[in-house]
Amino acid sequence: MRYMMLVRADENTEAGVLPPPELFEEMGRYNEELVKAGVLLAADGLQPSAKGFRVTWPGGKPKVTDGPFAEAKELIAGYWIIQVKSREEAVEWASRVPFGEGGVLELRQIFEPTDFPGDALPPDALEREKALREEVERQAGNR
């Protein structure tokens, strides 16, 4: 099962303040542990929302709104995607993230095609999804 571990933004991340070098080193060691354990699929920090934008569809037409966005506590500053055998293993890895006082990490399980009831998807949807995933992996290997 895959989980996305979402790092909540705060006033510092939204201001573009980078963590101290010691924290970068700790995060690097943590990421190395994830890689060595074979559970890390992706991980990145995100630029502040001032450098981002949102696309909404009022009336069914796309509208682009540039950041920054008001509520830092509702924003994401970074993420990991991990593949683990259980919720308990996800909790174990999340508990080891080297956050100091006040860090917030939210975990969300990622849907797998097999999570949907048999009649929820068109008959060829699972095969199409599998083919798309294989193509994405193939392209990633060619980069």
Rank of each mutant, 00 (worst) to 15 (best):
E135H: 09
N31F: 08
E22G: 12
L105M: 05
R133M: 15
R29C: 10
Q109P: 15
G118Q: 04
A72M: 03
P48H: 03
P48S: 11
E74S: 13
G141F: 02
V64G: 02
A131Q: 10
M1T: 11
A120L: 03
G118E: 13
E92L: 13
R54I: 13
L23D: 02
E134C: 07
A72K: 02
I110H: 00
A90R: 01
P68C: 13
L40T: 05
I76A: 01
D124L: 13
M5Q: 08
S95F: 02
A43K: 00
A50G: 14
E88H: 07
A50Y: 00
T114I: 04
P48I: 11
L34W: 01
R133N: 09
E33A: 14
A131F: 02
P21W: 03
R128F: 08
K36S: 13
G16E: 01
V7D: 00
T65W: 00
V91L: 13
V91F: 05
E112I: 06
A72S: 15
E74R: 05
G38W: 02
R2T: 10
K73M: 13
A42D: 11
I81P: 03
G52Y: 02
A37C: 10
Q47V: 15
E134Q: 14
P123T: 10
G59H: 02
P113V: 14
F24H: 09
K61V: 15
E14I: 13
R2A: 12
A90L: 09
V55C: 05
L107P: 06
R96F: 06
K73I: 14
E106W: 03
W93M: 07
N12T: 05
